[in-house]
Design a protein around this nucleic acid. Sequence first.
DNA 1: TGGCGCATTTCGTGATCACAAAAGACGAAT
DNA 2: ATTCGTCTTTTGTGATCACGAAATGCGCCA
Lengths: 215, 215
Amino acid sequence: MLLNPRPDPAPSAHDRVYRGLRGRIMHGELAPGLPLTLRGIGAEFDVSMTPAREAVRRLSAEGALTISSSGRVSTPELSNDRIEELAALRALLEVELASRALPRAHIALIERLQSINSRIAEDIARQDAVAYIRRNLEFHRTLYLRAQAPAMLAMAETVWLQLGPTMRALYGRLRRKDPPHYHRLIISALKAGDEPGLRLAVRSDVTQGLRMLVA
Amino acid sequence: MLLNPRPDPAPSAHDRVYRGLRGRIMHGELAPGLPLTLRGIGAEFDVSMTPAREAVRRLSAEGALTISSSGRVSTPELSNDRIEELAALRALLEVELASRALPRAHIALIERLQSINSRIAEDIARQDAVAYIRRNLEFHRTLYLRAQAPAMLAMAETVWLQLGPTMRALYGRLRRKDPPHYHRLIISALKAGDEPGLRLAVRSDVTQGLRMLVA
DNA sequence: TGGCGCATTTCGTGATCACAAAAGACGAAT
DNA sequence: ATTCGTCTTTTGTGATCACGAAATGCGCCA
């Protein structure tokens, strides 16, 4: 008997649309305030309005899209207060996730993180904002997966999703040269098993970038 | 000119369904594992399948409903691990919310909380589990509204939503006689402006009930 | 040149329908 | 009595359509 490792011969249309849009939003490929239409989304993914609407509805429930009172769909434009709040949420959730991941962080994980980190440096050198955002989130997700806390990780990803378009606007204007300093602190704290240091490093890394966006 | 305080003459169908289902789930009116059908929901709210599906899709995005691989909809049956994780999330978020509400908590708010608390005692005397859950959440929400942190409050409510059916199962079997002890500690800490005490009281209140559910 | 009003187009909403897959009911064979 | 196979029913999915509202474009007038 041959069990297919991917028992998914027919992914549903709305899920395909959902995943496609979600990826673009989270990785900052869509600018804040960008208007979308159901018919446009449907045409782009080659489906009718029905699954497009379901995907949009789901994304708006996660805060990845905003729907005006007249039903118009667009990527969110966040106020400074909201950005600060989301940054505080990131700090709250991700510090906890990192803390839970710490006792399970073996050497293989740390090497993976270092590998991701060096690729981030390449993305920075190439000035590729989207790749940088994606790789940065991959760094964090790789660490947090070890926390064995799926609901908490899902919430953190929801926050990333809400910040996606805004992060694009941030890293677009920010011309940085150096790889993220706090990522190296995170790795050091992981190696040393230093929980307070890890918490501080994660909090700093998460808060750092958002601060200049508010300015 | 007479401005209507409710400028919502025509609430959309899917929103009506969403709100209706959400309230029932959050307040524990639906048992865990209860199967639902789109046609049934549509008939109950007197709409077609389309808005019913949108509401269900949105609720499943919030974790209030689970959708099987074949598309079947039901209220979630949470594992013990998931319950513990959600309790930890409640602690994390609500301690922060209470802490942010503390400096803005005036006497009028505290009186409102005491009023809600005495009604909780009545609900307990009446052995009305649904009313108890609803009032208990009202107590927490009233406090957290003062935190001026809408995104954080929304996340906390999402956790409540996921725990709704399970809380029903909990308070159904639990025959308690006394009003919640930790609510009085919360009020005391608010009066005294005691932040560490408040954080501890909220954490205890949130963790308390869930512990015996895991047993 | 700038603002106003009307017609056209675009867009979201919700109902309906055909289709396929899953679940359930029923009966026969062991 | 139980299990297996089949047939019927139930259910979710996605496309299409009609409708009304919102937005857009355009021309007119000041």
